[in-house]
Each structure stands twice: as C-alpha cells, then as structure tokens.
Design a protein around this nucleic acid. Structure first.
Length: 483
RNA sequence: GGCGGCGUAGCCAAGUGGUAAGGCAGAGCUCUGCAAAAGCUCCAUUCAGCGGUUCAAAUCCGCUCGCCGCCUCCA
C-alpha cells in the first residue's frame, strides 16, 4: 500500500508521488515571532513533525523547511510598546519558540530560514512580479494585482466576487483592486527598513514564504503545510506570487491541520482564549500533550480540556506500564516458559502490527487509528506477561516494534520506568500530605496488619486514599503512589 | 449574506458502500485479609432527524435541525 494524503487544492485524498523519486521537499509555515506560542502552534508543529518523521521512516530523503517570520507589523508594534528595536522581540521569541519545540520533542527541520536573511531574494521576486505585469508600485508600496492571476483563489475555492461581497471596503486609494495585497510596504518614520528600488521598506507578510521556499526547495516542490486558517489569504497569496513569477506550478500537495478548540470554539490570539505551550507543559508532561494531539486525526478539530488531557495521560500510562513490564521481563534471567495461548496471540499480533500501523499512517497520517492498533498490541502484551511467559525473542520484537512507533510519533521515547517515575513525581508534588506522614502511617498500618487489626489497617488506607495516596501491598512490603 | 466543514455510546475517537476499531468512565468476575495493577466478561440492532438510491448505507443523494470555521491578523 502506498501513502495517500488529503490535498486541500483538489479536495481529495491522492496517492503521494514525489517530484523526484525517493525525495520529498516540504515547507511548513512557521510562526511570526512576536509572542509565546500557544497550543494551536503546538498542534500544527507536532502534526507536521509526524509527517516529516513518517516520510523519513518510509524511506524518503526529506528536505524540510520551516521558516521564522521575523519582520512584521505585529513585531514592530510589540517593539514599540516595549521601546526596544524590533529584532530584540524577534530574537527573544525565536528563542522561546525553539525551546518550546524542543520540549515537544520535535525533530529539527533541515532548514529554518528567517525572512530577514532573504531580503535580497524577496526584492528580486517582487521585481520579477513587477516586470511581468503582476505587481505595481503605489507610493512606496508594491501590490500584487490579483486580476492578473486568473486562478487566484483556487485553493480556497472561491471567486473574487464572492470575496468582495463579504469584504469590508478599503479606505486607502493605494490599491487598484481591494483584493490586491502588499508585497512590499513602505517604512513609516522610525520603522525598520531595507533599501530597495522602491525606496525604504520591508516585505509584506506573504512574499517571504514564496521567496524562501523557491530558494531552498526550488520553484516547484512537493508538500506545503500549515494551519487551516492560512489557506486564505496566506497560502492563496503564496500561490499567486510564486506561480505568477515562475509560470510553473508552485506546490503539488497542500496539507492543512485543524484547529485546537476551547469549549468547541477556535482558540486564537484575537479571541484571547488561548493557552501557551509553556503553561500547558508546566501542568502536563510533553509526551502527554503529544499523545493527546495524536489521538485525533490532524485535520479534525480537537478540543483542549483538562478532562481530555487527563484521559490522554491515563492512556499513555497504560502503554508505558506494558512497556515497563516488557523491560522487567527482559531483565529477569532467561526462563523459557511454556508457549501458551497468549504466546501465540502475541506472535500473531506482532506479525500484523507493522503492516497495520503503516496502513493507518499511509491513510493520510491517521494517527488515531494507529493508536488503536497500539492499544491492541498492549493488551496482547499484558496478557502474555500476566501468564508469566517469557519468550525473549518475542519481548524483544515488542520492544523493536515500539521503537519504530517512537521514531514516528515522537512519544514512547522514554525509558518506561523513568516515564512512570516522572509521572509519579509530578503527581506526588501535588499532594497536600507530607511524605514523612505517609511513611509513618504505612509503618503503623504494617504493624496493625501484623496484629491482624484489619479495621485499623483499612482506616489508614481510606484516610490516605482520600488524600490521593494509594497503598500497594506487595511481597516486599507496602509501597504507595499518588493517584 | 456568500463559501466550506462537522454531528458515531456517559466522555474522547477511528471507520466514508459489505453489516460499528480503540481509549476513558461504569458493572460483574479472577487475584488480594481489604485494596491496587493486570487479565476475563459485559457496555451503540445502531451512527443528529426525515426521505431517497442500492441486493447492501454511519458511509452516496435530497431536505430539516444543531454546532463550528473562512470571507480581517491568526497554526
């Protein structure tokens, strides 16, 4: 079976055929660096991180470009507010973006260009568009003339008439058509600028992506990704700029991820209902957040809530517990248990697993379905372990299968025992009862149990349970864990 | 107003023509002094509603209801 992906341009799932066999060139719109990233950014970046990882795991040599938009009105506004040069803002938030992405376990793109590193390329591209009659200078600005590009709006599948019916009327007289958009903006006094044939100014928002992608990936490349909200105007304008300049198709497959919702409403800066990645990672493990994001298909909306994150946490723990069991069994001295029913079942499950996983991922990166297959495997593993079987080869095969998954999903990358320990520490930190007190009560209970005073023993269990502490009686004595 | 998407169990979520994956929660059982973990069993005659096409529909078509998004910066 081959990889199929949903192409926004055609509105259908298509078989993926790269321009050059064995190689994939993909571009994903990064962030405008003027503030901390929120979980919407986390979703987009995790989604395309998995695309990147899966393509690599499928044997492709992938060139992945993700840009930083480091010159823009919002950055300038923020800089003015703080009374610092614009690049103080952009540098600061490039750094926090990098930190956030590292914490989320993202693989590094091949290239991470900044708009300001490609000003010459941008100016050249704007000049080409003017020369070809697709752009015009108006004052110190340069605008793209949408009427000169007949297939404008082919991505968002609308027409200029439809757009204008709902659009507010432009006040300025600089544009010939209200739908025309800025390729280059004249600098106002005090604003950062670059010298160019049209005076002093800076690039418009969309042109940088056209310039950087063609520079690093070529005039036509395979995959372009981003959030749904970028379809119009950003990606539409990229298509117009690039195709008008080169006369060649710009991108073969357009991929767009769905939104993160809060209470079924889009989360966004403008609505003010957003959580930053760092806020969320203070409360949840990064693998939990990734697991949560992968539990739904990347194109579907996903609802961010404490309950949903808590569920993700429980699910991820279930998988890690099974993996910890596998490691424990492998650490024990080799015992060749009799091959029972669980042995045969796990063997079959494993044999089918890789194929099922690939089928799910080949179907437009269906991570939710792939997770279902993982849970099926986990149940077989638990059954196998519960029957006290210990077939080394089989257990090692489980380990290898999950390592393959880890490579693609960017989760299950921790040593299982370490992960579970991490989760315990996190929960234990929230306890209101001191550890010394817990230990004292455990001692008291152990004594009570020895004396067969089960009434007192159960009182202590209930008392601690009410405070979030669960007691675990084992052969080596009583342990406890935060619930 | 124009365009687009979605509605699957208490909750999350796959499935887009062949008779409803998976997870969480819940119930019972095994294990345990009692618990926990794990295992086993159960948990949607049905996919928002109503019509239609078909041997066959959650899946295709039409209508209705509800929710959301884009049309302005946005992942």
């Amino acid at each position: 079976m081959s990889l199929k992906l949903y192409n926004t341009l055609t509105g259908t799932k298509e078989e993926f055929v790269p321009l050059e066999p064995g190689k994939v060139k993909m571009y994903v719109c990064g962030v405008t660096v003027y503030d901390h990233c929120h979980i919407g950014h986390a979703r987009a970046n995790v989604a395309f991180d998995v695309v990147y990882r899966y393509l690599r795991a499928s044997g492709y040599q992938v060139t992945y470009v993700r840009n930083y938009t480091d010159i823009d009105d919002k950055i300038i506004n923020r800089a003015n507010k703080e009374g610092v040069p614009y690049n103080v803002i952009s540098e600061r938030y490039i750094q926090t973006f990098d930190e956030d992405m590292a914490r989320l376990g993202l693989a590094l793109p091949t290239h991470q260009p900044r708009a300001t590193e490609h000003i010459d390329d941008i100016i050249r591209l704007v000049q080409t568009l003017i020369d070809r009659g697709h752009a015009y200078q108006s004052g110190g600005d340069v605008y793209f003339s949408v009427e000169t590009f007949p297939s404008y709006l082919k991505l968002s599948k609308r027409t200029l008439e439809e757009m204008q019916a709902g659009a507010r009327v432009e006040v300025g007289e600089l544009k010939r058509n209200p739908m025309d958009f800025a390729l280059w903006k004249e600098a106002k006094p005090g604003e950062p600028f670059w010298e160019c044939p049209w005076g002093k100014g800076r690039p418009g928002w969309h042109i940088e992506c056209s310039a950087m992608s063609s520079c690093l990936l070529g005039e036509t490349f395979d995959i372009h990704g981003g959030g749904r909200d970028l379809i119009f105007p950003h990606h539409e304008n990229e298509i117009a700029q690039s195709e008008a300049a080169t006369g060649k198709p710009f991108v073969r497959y357009w991929l767009h991820n769905g939104f993160v919702n809060i209470n079924a409403e889009k989360m966004s800066k403008s609505l003010g209902n957003f959580f930053t990645i760092r806020e969320v990672l203070d409360r949840y493990d990064s693998e939990v957040l990734r697991f949560f994001l992968l539990s739904a298909h990347y194109r579907s909306p996903i609802d961010f809530s404490d309950q949903n994150l808590a569920e993700a946490e429980v699910g991820l723990e279930r998988i890690y517990k099974a993996l910890a069991g596998v490691e424990e069994a492998l650490a024990r001295p080799a015992a060749t248990g009799a091959a029972g029913a669980a042995h045969a079942e796990l063997g079959e499950r494993l044999a089918a697993f890789e194929t099922r996983f690939k089928e799910a991922m080949d179907d437009d990166f269906n991570t939710a379905q792939a997770l279902g297959h993982i849970f099926d495997l986990v149940r077989s593993v638990n059954r196998f372990l519960a029957e006290n079987e210990s077939n080394r080869a089989l257990l090692e095969a489980v380990r290898a299968a999950m390592a393959m998954v880890a490579e693609v999903f960017g989760i299950f990358t921790s040593v299982p025992a370490a992960f579970l320990e991490r989760m315990q520490t996190r929960k234990a930190d929230e306890l209101t009862i001191p550890v010394a007190e817990i230990e004292r009560l455990i001692e008291e209970r152990t004594a009570a149990r020895k004396a067969k005073d089960f009434k007192r023993s159960d009182e202590i269990r209930d008392f601690l349970l009410e405070r979030g502490v669960a007691l675990l009686d084992g052969p080596q004595g009583t342990n406890w864990k935060a619930k």
